[in-house]
């Protein structure tokens, strides 16, 4: 008896070691270019283009200094935060409501409607540029955040609607109905019962919508000028007509990724929460 238990434990340890090694390999694959970007951001121009590539070097902050003093990254950072946070919130609220409607109610033309919402994402953004530019000038919102907020909300909706719909219909209606029998209205039932169970889906969706809006370049560069310029536009300026300022580009990449990475770390808690709540659905 004791022998098989020890055997079992040893096998488990070996399996765990294997999984750990695989996990490390996967992490290394995804992390190395990120590491390289972070490292290159701190390299001064002289060091960054040497061959063989340098792994140990004295870090320099000149790229970041240039970003914030000459390239105007401070203002752009602020603009990005304002525009993207607002549009993510709007998309999450409107989209989850729509997803709930599609998941819980019997509507005629439900599938067509869902596909229409998805088709927003199918349009190459190029075609929207000039009409949006014209609208922007006509309404006087060129180089203000409002048009971008509206557009990013629009492009975030397909994600929210389609992802949340799947997560909502994974939760059987009986759960809500039980709460409603206990005396809750439908809204309260949703808020107290369904929403906690939706946390993993909400967390994942919020990260995705935020991230897409945060990194959007084409419309941001053409619909803004000095006032409402966002970070991707600043990052792109590392590409000179006949050269590429790699150090500056990496520094911009770092500045742009840090807020989103922080957001993801905050969301990890909600992603995991599903583990304990899964027990509820039995």
């Amino acid at each position: 008896m004791a022998a098989t238990l020890a055997e079992h434990r040893a096998r488990q340890r070996r399996a765990a070691a294997l999984y750990w090694a695989l996990a490390l390999l996967a992490t290394a694959f995804f992390f190395f270019p990120v590491f390289w970007m972070f490292a290159s951001a701190f390299k001064s121009d002289a060091v960054s283009s040497t061959y063989p590539p340098v792994f140990l070097f004295a870090p320099s902050l000149e790229n970041f200094a240039h970003l914030f003093t000459e390239a105007g990254a401070g203002r752009a950072l602020w603009n990005s935060f304002f525009i993207v946070t607002l549009s993510t919130l709007l998309a999450m609220i409107a989209g989850t409501m729509a997803a709930y409607a599609l998941a819980r109610f019997d509507l005629r033309g439900k599938n067509t409607l869902a596909l229409e919402i998805l088709s927003i994402r199918m349009l190459p953004p190029i075609v929207s540029v000039i009409p949006l530019f014209m609208i922007a000038r006509w309404l006087g919102v060129f180089d203000t955040p409002w048009l971008l907020i509206a557009v990013y909300t629009l492009t975030g909706l397909p994600f929210v609607v389609w992802i949340m719909r799947v997560f909502i219909q994974d939760i059987p209606q009986s759960v809500e109905e039980a709460a409603m029998i206990d005396g809750c209205g439908r809204i309260e039932a949703f808020w107290r019962v369904t929403l906690p169970l939706l946390l993993p889906g909400l967390a994942a969706t919020m990260v995705i919508v935020f991230m897409f809006a945060w990194n959007e370049f084409l419309l941001a560069s053409l619909l803004t000028s000095s006032e409402a310029k966002t970070l991707p536009v600043i990052a792109a300026n590392a590409i000179k007509p006949k050269a590429i300022a790699f150090g500056l580009a990496c520094a911009a990449g770092v500045v742009m990724s840090v807020p989103v990475i922080v957001l993801v770390l905050m969301m990890q808690k909600y992603l995991v929460q599903g583990l304990t709540l899964g027990a509820v659905k039995g």
């Binding site: 996967a26 990120v34 991230m211 990194n215 990449g253």
Partner: peptide, 14 residues
């Protein structure tokens, strides 16, 4: 968390 980072980086920087 580390694995999620690549998709967060702006495509231009990538």
């Amino acid at each position: 968390s580390v694995i999620l980072i690549p998709m967060l980086i702006t495509p231009i920087a990538v």
